[in-house]
Each structure stands twice: as structure tokens, then as C-alpha cells.
Design a binder for these strands. Structure first.
Lengths: 218, 218
DNA sequence: ATATATTTTTAGTCTAATCTAAATATTTAT
DNA sequence: ATAAATATTTAGATTAGACTAAAAATATAT
């Protein structure tokens, strides 16, 4: 049986080590976990013993295949819950993260399979991050920010970079949400402001907005 | 901050002591928690210290008002999650309990308020037990079993007593579910078998079925 | 009413996850 | 290449929640 704390360390190693492939330093891990280096060392030892991690003293830690599987499964759960909270329970994009940190530890294969189906097998969460499928495969989507978009091209909104309340409220006001269709009508060479048609409505957005909106080409 | 274990003990005291009003013995509590009497004593001490419980050595334990509030809130969450799992995620009535035991500990007021609204403010869970509202008030509904029903009266299905897979499958096969309308057409005096019209369809059910189906008068 | 049985509490350990402080490796700078 | 700085590990303690075994209180039975 894997404990909640072990799961959280595994997740942190995964994120810090770029999908768990690169070595993660004890100090970096301790900081991510809001704990001390000595505690991180203890946990790394334990994870290595349970064969979730590869560890050589003073050389940092990576995840084993089974460690990665666990991490990916937690990420899948986290992101599916985020979609649920935003799409079904009226949460805003910035409210969901810490709640999903709790929900991701609920243990039930059927729950997560059914939730996935209930949500229509989403491939991305409200921040535009990909949701691994049942087999741990990520859907790769070329993600760009609006400021890198091309004139006359049509895109779909994947998520946001800045998830401040103000920015999300700005998007709401302009009817831009997950999956919104955005057509780049014109890019003003002078100040790089962008004329877009969002869900049919014309709108001019500034660079600072454009830098924080993730899109995929349609 | 209240721990998960504390919450579970409080819930057990609430259930064992008839809404936490009656004294609960250390041994009974230990058995309910699958632990030993000495552990229960330790926890009772702790709960009393935190003012969730009233405790006199050798005299058992009751809940304080704040302890009861906590218990009722956990029960509310548990039962709302059960409704969600059955109504939205295709769980059967007997699959939901242990999963709801995990979900009931998720901490977010907004989550539970929104879930409640999403489900249409249900008053009863899939087992026919009442769901306390936001203020901790239970909807009292006179709950009878089908075997006590009156001829020519119409009822609504509240839940089941026996939640074995076989029984639930029997009900599914006959299109009886939560909220189904059941009219008692005729009670056979010879063997007490009951002729009912369930969701429009005529059906004869035996006493053993009738004893396990909870109804409320319409 | 007293002995016996049962229940509850106490005392002392154990494990997981944390901490501080000290010791040891490794890295960096000269 | 060595000293200083930084990173990591070790050693020993702490806390929550559990355990066993023994002691103490309460309940039961004759």
C-alpha cells in the first residue's frame, strides 16, 4: 500500500525531474514538499526500497517505471477532477488546483474511469495541460500562446498561463472559455495588439492578454 | 485542524450513540473503528481535549454540539457523494459506500455546496437515508417498507435495506430505482405477495423483496 | 457481600513522517 | 590543488495513532 505522502513525493519528483527522467536534488525536492532536506532523504530511501525510485547517495533521485506509472495516474486524476470542477461545478480555473490536490488521492479505478467518460474523455485540463489516458499516454498537442499566432488562422482555446482572478474574469466577460474558437483577424504591427473573433464576436486584445492565452491550431 | 482519524471517530460516536446523544462505550467504539480499546481511550481523550466530546473516565463518551456539527457535515458529504456516484457515474447502490468513506473527507465548502446544487438538492441518499441540508437539518420522511404498504396507495422508492448485488440486479431488471413510482394494486392474503405497478409496469413481488424496499407515501 | 468476570485505563513500545544539529560529501573559487 | 561554500546524509528526538500487557475500576453472579 502506498501512502498519501509517498504519492506526493513521487508526484514532486516527476514534475521536478521533467517527467521523472532527470535527477532531482534532495534540496529541490525538500523545498517542493515544504519540508527539510533530511526528511526528503528519508523518503527517497523509502521510495527506493519500494522500487518506485532510483537513488544513489549524493547523486539525486529519478523515478523507476513503476514510480512513473504512479505519478502519471495521479496527474490523470488531478486533471480530470479539475475539468469536473470547472465544467460541472462552476469553479473558475484558478480555484481548482488545491482542491484537485485532495481529490487526486481518492482510490478507485472505477471512479476515475467513469468520471473520464462522464466528462467525455477530455484531453486537456482547464490550464491547457494534457490529461494522460487510461494507458498513461498523453495527447500531444502543439500548444502556442496567442501572441505567437498567425493572422487568418483559427484556433481553439486550450487554457491560460496567468490564472489570476482578474484575468479569468476578463476572459469570462468576453465569453472566452475552454474550447472557445478564436480566429486571428489582424495583428497590428505598431503595438502587436491582436484583433480576434472569439466565438463570433470581434475583440481587440493587448500583448499582455495574448501572452497568457494558450491555443491550439484547428 | 481536525485529522482524518479524528473525523472517523467522531462519525462512529455519532452513529453508535444515536446521533451522538447517548453514551458510547470504549469497547463498542474500538470495535466500530477496528482498533483496540486502549487506542479508543487515547482518541476519546484527545477529542474531549479539543472539545468535540464529553468524557468521564469509565463512563463512556458523547459528542458536544461542535462534535455533532462535524459528524453531521461528514454525513452530508458522504450521502451527497453517494447520490453523485449512483446518479451520474453509473455506480450501483452497493458499490458506493466505501468510496464515499474516502470522499467524505475532502475539505471544501464550495465543493459540497456546488455538488448539492448540481444534484438538485437531494433529500435522501441511494439507501434512503436523509441528507442533512447546509444547516444540518434532516428532512424527515416517514419511511416504510413495501411489506407494510397499503392497497391502492401510491409510493415513491426511497432506497433499499438489502443492498446485495442480486437484489439490486433484480430491481434493475424490473426498472425499479431511486424515485420510482410504485402503486400497490393488490395484496394477496394467502402468501402476502404484492401486486404492484412500478413505473407503469405490473409486477408481483414476494415478501422477501417487499421487506427490503423502502418507500414513502406520495 | 464478596468473588469473578468484564470493561476501561495506564504504561511502555512501535511506525511513519517530521525536525534539529552535527558530520560528511561534493562543488566552486581561487 | 586546496580551502571555503554548499549540499547531503546521519544521529537522535518528536508527534499521531496504533499496539500489548498489566493494573484498576465497574458490573455480575452466587
Amino acid at each position: 500500500m502506498i501512502t498519501l505522502t509517498e504519492e506526493n513525493y513521487i508526484k514532486a519528483i516527476y514534475h521536478l525531474g521533467k517527467q521523472g527522467r532527470e535527477n532531482v536534488n534532495t534540496n529541490a525536492l525538500a523545498e517542493a514538499m515544504n519540508t527539510k532536506a533530511s526528511s526528503a532523504t528519508d523518503m527517497i530511501r523509502k521510495l527506493a526500497e519500494k522500487d518506485y525510485a532510483n537513488y544513489k547517495k549524493y547523486k539525486g533521485v529519478t523515478l523507476t517505471e513503476s514510480g512513473k506509472d504512479i505519478a502519471i495516474n495521479i496527474i490523470r486524476k488531478h486533471r480530470l477532477w479539475e475539468v469536473f470542477l470547472v465544467e460541472k461545478l462552476n469553479f473558475t480555473w484558478d480555484e481548482v488546483h488545491e482542491l484537485a490536490e485532495q481529490l487526486e488521492h481518492i482510490k478507485s479505478q472505477k471512479l476515475i474511469d467513469e468520471l473520464d467518460a462522464f466528462l467525455g474523455h477530455p484531453t486537456h485540463d482547464p490550464h491547457g495541460d494534457p490529461i494522460p489516458d487510461k494507458n498513461g499516454e498523453f495527447t500531444f498537442v502543439e500548444k502556442i500562446v496567442l501572441s505567437q499566432a498567425q493572422e487568418h488562422q483559427t484556433y481553439s482555446c486550450l487554457g491560460v498561463n496567468d490564472s489570476s482572478t482578474e484575468f479569468l474574469q476578463y476572459l469570462n466577460k468576453n465569453d472566452i472559455g475552454l474550447g472557445s474558437t478564436i480566429e486571428v483577424v489582424h495583428i497590428e504591427p505598431f503595438d502587436k495588439s491582436i484583433n480576434i473573433k472569439a466565438n463570433g464576436k470581434l475583440l481587440t486584445v493587448s500583448q499582455s492578454v495574448a501572452k497568457n492565452l494558450y491555443l491550439k491550431k484547428l
